[in-house]
Nucleic acid binder design. Structure first.
Lengths: 176, 176
DNA sequence: GTCTATAAACGGATAGAC
DNA sequence: GTCTATCCGTTTATAGAC
């Protein structure tokens, strides 16, 4: 396992496949086809599928934190929230990709504790950031006062994640 | 494929496994272990895994509609909504089971069109029922007037589905 | 680092006896 | 309706040449 460009490409493709099909629904062969190297070469970079999963979670968790830092540079909490929701919308537009952590959450019961903990931290990071943005917005006066900003943050997060899954399935949004 | 009690037991176990682990994460062998008959006997009832999936969706879609009818007998819209959300909470308490249709929605891209349509109808049924309850609640005066009850119904549904997935992953709800 | 070749286990599925 | 036995493609993973 290393951080060279081949390893990076494998992680990118793996993330896409997890987000569109789920962890249990893609194989090293699928990766091989898309990355353009043999499955054995992928094993060189990521000995087991769980090693790959760990690397993907870690990499995209970091990238996500960087994005949140970027969003935090917006002038108002309202714009920060808009940037956050835009990210979800943009991601979903790419072949109905859902949030990596939620895709993994749906497969959580079949994953080892080690991975579960990483996903848990990833999920919590969303809520913590959202709660801080809500608090800032209330202070700024852009948002109305909330009894429980932390719970409101959770509700926004639930709705974002649920919306993507439902949008994928509902004929209302994607009629044939 | 028939509707005898063995077929029913297989469907129950299959539904549980789909809800807890996902469609791609369980095998006929898993069913065999839990139901107590050989995999070949399961194939007698459901020739292919997709036949099984179709039967499970159909069965639980019907059972769900029956539940909604039951909920609709409550005196007020508020109580109907409470009964609905209680059902989700109760389901989740059973080994972190999530809604069948959302579990399948997360695996949707790897399923054939035939199944996707069934899931889509299942998902839409939630929203339609919720919207009608909201409208009734507004008429009764129990709910405050909403600009767009249909959209509000969707938002409730998104939050319910998202909450279960997030709850499964978040350390806030299930600390180790 | 990537390849060929291959092992070993697992997956869905079928044939045929009882 | 259930069983044993088996087929065959796929999957994860390894050994060893280049």
């Amino acid at each position: 396992m290393n951080n060279g460009s081949t390893a990076l490409k494998i992680m990118e493709v793996a993330s896409e496949l997890i987000q569109t099909h789920g962890f249990h629904a893609f194989s090293y062969r699928d990766l091989s086809d898309r990355v353009g190297i043999k499955t054995s070469s992928i094993h060189y970079h990521f000995p087991t599928k769980l090693d790959l999963a760990k690397a993907v979670i870690h990499h995209y968790h970091q990238a996500f934190l960087d994005k949140l830092d970027e969003f935090s540079k917006e002038e108002t909490a309202k714009k920060m929230l808009q940037a956050y929701t835009d990210l979800f919308a943009e991601t979903f537009r790419q072949g109905k990709r859902i949030c990596l952590c939620v895709s993994l959450a749906s497969d959580l019961n079949g994953l080892p504790e080690e991975i579960r903990n990483e996903i848990s931290i990833f999920v919590d990071a969303h809520e913590i950031w959202l709660a801080s943005v809500l608090k800032q917005g209330i202070d700024e006066g852009g948002f109305r006062k909330l009894e429980n900003p932390r719970q409101a943050a959770r509700n926004i997060f639930y709705a974002m994640e649920g919306a993507m899954l439902v949008a994928r399935a509902s004929s209302v949004f994607f009629p044939n």
